[in-house]
Design a protein around this nucleic acid. Structure first.
Length: 257
DNA sequence: ATGGTTGAATGTCAA
């Protein structure tokens, strides 16, 4: 099966492009982040007409995640499902074809020294606990989404300039490493080394796409049983140049199961 | 360089 992740930065603005992309690429699973739409008016029917099951965890104006799959989505969980943590719409979990899929929109962090940066760190710690409490590293599991962290020098343009800034800060990276060390493999990095492979190019930098001034902050991770079956993972950079694009693009992985 | 652009909502925040 082919799984994909996409930060839409407002799904209603992106809807025609996402529908075209789905029809062309036909992934079995798509995790969408930053849908920015409440569940009542989520464009369910448009995706269902393409043959997808749709589950959503949305809120007004900000955040919001959705999970699409060809075939049924079972064992649905919205949020962390407890009262231990502030509940905004950043995580949705479902099971597709025997594989647990967790789709997350990790907090951006905004700026060092702010409550939002501390929230990002706490959210990552909460996610580590969610994994450990609910799942095992020997079961088939995929964690995908906008992780909002560049893990290494190769994952951001001009790493010397950006080191220690939001998105490339040691406190974020250490928390991500703790999550990954639970038993996950970065599927893109399993197949491709080196700099210049990005998933996000800022709107506010003129010519960022053409100059490839980007970040690899959208990731697909998997437990060993899935990673061993992953035969390819790639970034669809062309979609970042489509009409009315998001500032992110699609990341995909093909898994031989 | 503390700007720049975009979406959701329609003033202004978040990214």
């Amino acid at each position: 099966m082919v799984v994909a992740t996409y930060n839409a930065a407002g799904l209603r603005a992106r809807l025609p492009g996402v529908l075209d992309w789905l029809a062309e690429n036909e992934p079995d699973v798509l995790g969408i982040q930053e849908t920015k739409v409440v569940d009542d008016i989520f464009p369910m029917a448009e995706f269902e007409e393409l043959g997808y099951s749709v589950v959503v965890n949305g809120q007004k104006s900000w955040n919001g995640v959705a999970l699409l799959a060809r075939g049924p989505i079972t064992s649905l969980r919205r949020g962390f499902q407890d009262d231990l943590f502030p509940e905004d719409a950043r995580i949705i979990t479902g099971e597709v074809n025997g594989v647990t899929i967790i789709n997350t929109y990790v907090p951006n962090g905004t700026a060092l020294g702010t409550d939002k940066f501390e929230y990002k760190l706490r959210w990552l710690e909460r996610f580590a606990k969610y994994l450990g409490d609910n799942f095992r590293p020997d079961q088939p599991l995929i964690w995908m989404g906008d992780i909002n962290i560049a893990p290494t020098d190769n994952d951001v343009f001009d790493p010397k300039r950006h080191w220690g800034k939001v998105g490339f800060h040691p406190d974020e990276i250490s928390r991500l490493e703790k999550i990954v060390n639970w038993g996950l493999v970065d599927l893109f990095r399993m197949h491709t080394e080196g700099p210049g492979n990005y998933t996000y190019w800022e709107f506010t930098i003129p010519g960022s796409v053409q100059r490839n001034l980007g970040w690899r902050i959208d990731h697909i991770y998997a437990t060993k049983p899935v990673a061993e079956a992953c035969i390819r993972s790639w970034i669809d950079k062309d979609a970042r140049s489509a009409e009315r694009p998001s500032d992110h693009t699609y990341v995909l992985a093909k898994i031989d199961i």
